[in-house]
Design a protein around this nucleic acid. Structure first.
Length: 289
DNA sequence: CACTTGACCTGTCCGC
DNA sequence: TGCGGACAGGTCAAGT
């Protein structure tokens, strides 16, 4: 899924749905998805209550009353879906009844609360993970130490943004945007969308991008991700929010997965190419090498 | 260090 | 309707 706007949407949903609930069970069906020992789970998770749900980059952190935190990465196909069978929460949305369908084949971890509700971690491709670690140790994780700044923070300026890229001067701008140690949270969808907005070809070398172009790109990254948060994220394939509902940003996408359709700016046909090993969507007229 | 590529998985879609 | 291959929202560990 999940880039910054999707993870932010899940986090906001979980904050509405699971705060103060008490964990009574934890079922793990894949040691890679949830590698903690049974001892740790029983000691620091069972019986605890949910205190807060936070996000950093594409990672969700669920703080427990035991001073332990569930650190979760959804990678490509992860989902965190809350279902309350007692109140039928999660039922009745289009094409799906979560009440009946979850847990399903892709469910890796089921966290049960003492009121009968459940939080499911589903992950078709098994790339994602859930780790239970001391809250104070979260900032010591390799990922947390290396990850770049949050682009939507109010005090994150255009100058800040540009300065982060100097280290990656000899690679292309798309690879640099996707590099989580440069800027946190940008993935394949929003990289393509913001490069189109700034009229920058994704294969251009970072070192050749002008200050003016960086300024545009900075504004586009923020505008595109803010719009997506407002739309509940992008459902390209699997993504759903904490209530099991899809996001609608794809209805507003300008280039992503729109190959063969006209560019909204100049009507030139959008094409799909490969850059930084990823499928990449551009307007060949607006975005020149 | 900076940079690129392949690996990790399952499912789906497309061409034969 | 089967089969092989490419591809899918993301990181990592290796290689150069």
């Amino acid at each position: 899924m999940p880039e910054l706007p999707e993870v932010e949407t899940v986090k906001n949903g979980l904050n509405r749905l699971i705060i103060d609930r008490k964990i009574s069970t934890a079922v793990n069906d894949n040691p890679k998805s949830f590698p903690n020992s049974i001892y740790d789970v029983e000691q620091f998770m069972i019986g605890s209550t949910i205190k807060d749900v936070r996000r950093r980059a594409k990672v969700i952190m669920i703080d427990l009353s035991t001073e332990y935190t569930l650190v979760i990465h959804l990678k490509m196909t992860g989902q965190l879906v809350f279902v309350d069978k007692a109140t039928r929460f999660g039922a009745g949305h289009p094409n799906d009844s979560l009440i009946d369908s979850l847990p399903d084949k892709s469910t890796r971890v089921t966290i049960g609360f003492d009121d009968g509700s459940d939080l499911y971690f589903n992950d078709q491709r098994k790339f994602g993970w859930v780790k239970l670690i001391p809250t104070l140790a979260v900032s010591d994780m390799d990922f947390m130490k290396k990850v770049g700044p949050e682009p939507l923070e109010p005090d994150f300026t255009s100058e800040h943004f540009m300065a982060r890229f100097t280290r990656r001067a000899r690679t292309n701008i798309k690879a640099a945007l996707l590099d989580q140690t440069v800027i946190a949270g940008v993935g394949n969808i929003y990289a393509d969308e913001s490069l189109w907005g700034a009229k920058i070809h994704p294969s251009r070398l970072v070192g050749d991008i002008t200050t003016g172009e960086f300024d545009k790109l900075y504004n586009e990254v923020r505008a595109v991700m803010n719009l997506s948060i407002e739309k509940g994220g992008s459902t390209n394939r699997n993504y759903v929010n904490a209530e099991g509902k899809k996001g609608s940003y794809m209805d507003f996408a300008r280039v992503f997965r729109r190959e063969g359709l006209p560019c909204p700016r100049c009507q030139t046909e959008i094409i799909k190419i490969k850059v930084a090993g990823r499928g990449t969507h551009i307007c060949p007229h607006c975005q020149q090498i």
